[in-house]
Amino acid sequence: MGEDISWEPGGKPSAALRPEIPHPARMYDYYLGGKDNFPADREAAERALAANPEFRSTARANRAFLQRAVRHVAALGIDQFLDIGTGIPTAGNTHETAQTVTPSARVVYVDNDPIVLTHARALMAGMGHGRTSVLQADLRDPAAILAAPEVGELLDPDRPVALVLAAVMHFLRDEDDPAGVLRTLLDALAPGSHLILSHGTADFIPAEIRDRVTGVYDKATAPLVGRSRAEVEGFLDGLEILEPGVVTVPLWRPEGEPAEGADRVSMYGVVARKP
Score class of each variant (00 low, 15 high):
residue 172 L to D: 09
residue 47 R to M: 13
residue 15 A to Q: 08
residue 210 R to M: 06
residue 211 D to H: 06
residue 245 G to F: 11
residue 74 A to C: 06
residue 82 L to P: 02
residue 202 A to E: 02
residue 159 R to Q: 15
residue 35 K to N: 14
residue 69 A to C: 10
residue 234 G to D: 04
residue 126 G to L: 03
residue 119 H to D: 01
residue 121 R to D: 06
residue 182 L to W: 04
residue 91 A to P: 00
residue 165 L to K: 08
residue 171 F to T: 06
residue 191 P to W: 11
residue 11 G to K: 02
residue 20 E to T: 06
residue 137 A to G: 11
residue 273 R to Y: 08
residue 20 E to F: 05
residue 14 S to T: 10
residue 166 A to Q: 14
residue 87 G to E: 01
residue 173 R to P: 00
residue 201 T to C: 05
residue 37 N to A: 10
residue 148 A to Q: 05
residue 81 F to E: 05
residue 120 A to R: 00
residue 30 Y to L: 05
residue 13 P to N: 07
residue 129 H to A: 11
residue 254 P to A: 12
residue 15 A to S: 14
residue 243 E to N: 06
residue 84 I to D: 00
residue 264 R to H: 12
residue 112 N to V: 01
residue 198 S to D: 11
residue 63 R to N: 04
residue 82 L to Q: 04
residue 102 T to H: 08
residue 88 I to W: 02
residue 127 M to P: 14
residue 171 F to V: 08
residue 46 E to G: 04
residue 190 A to M: 11
residue 182 L to S: 07
residue 221 T to P: 00
residue 83 D to F: 02
residue 4 D to W: 01
residue 134 V to A: 15
residue 260 E to L: 14
residue 25 A to T: 09
residue 107 V to N: 03
residue 127 M to H: 11
residue 255 E to V: 14
residue 19 P to N: 10
residue 101 V to Q: 02
residue 95 H to T: 01
residue 85 G to E: 09
residue 181 V to M: 07
residue 211 D to I: 01
residue 33 G to P: 06
residue 42 R to M: 11
residue 150 E to D: 15
residue 40 A to S: 15
residue 81 F to T: 03
residue 229 R to N: 02
residue 88 I to N: 02
residue 12 K to Q: 13
residue 92 G to C: 05
residue 118 T to S: 14
residue 171 F to P: 03
residue 157 P to K: 08
residue 182 L to F: 08
residue 131 R to H: 13
residue 136 Q to G: 14
residue 26 R to M: 10
residue 209 I to N: 00
residue 251 L to F: 12
residue 185 L to C: 08
residue 14 S to L: 03
residue 223 P to Y: 04
residue 55 F to K: 04
residue 51 A to Q: 12
residue 152 G to Q: 14
residue 92 G to K: 01
residue 66 L to D: 01
residue 144 A to Y: 01
residue 259 A to H: 14
residue 133 S to A: 15
residue 244 P to N: 08
residue 112 N to D: 08
residue 4 D to Y: 00
residue 157 P to S: 13
residue 210 R to S: 13
residue 69 A to N: 06
residue 137 A to L: 05
residue 154 L to S: 11
residue 229 R to G: 02
residue 266 S to A: 14
residue 208 E to I: 00
residue 212 R to A: 15
residue 183 R to F: 06
residue 170 H to N: 09
residue 158 D to C: 06
residue 32 L to C: 14
residue 219 K to R: 15
residue 228 S to E: 09
residue 161 V to S: 03
residue 266 S to Q: 14
residue 108 V to F: 03
residue 205 I to T: 13
residue 108 V to G: 04
residue 243 E to R: 12
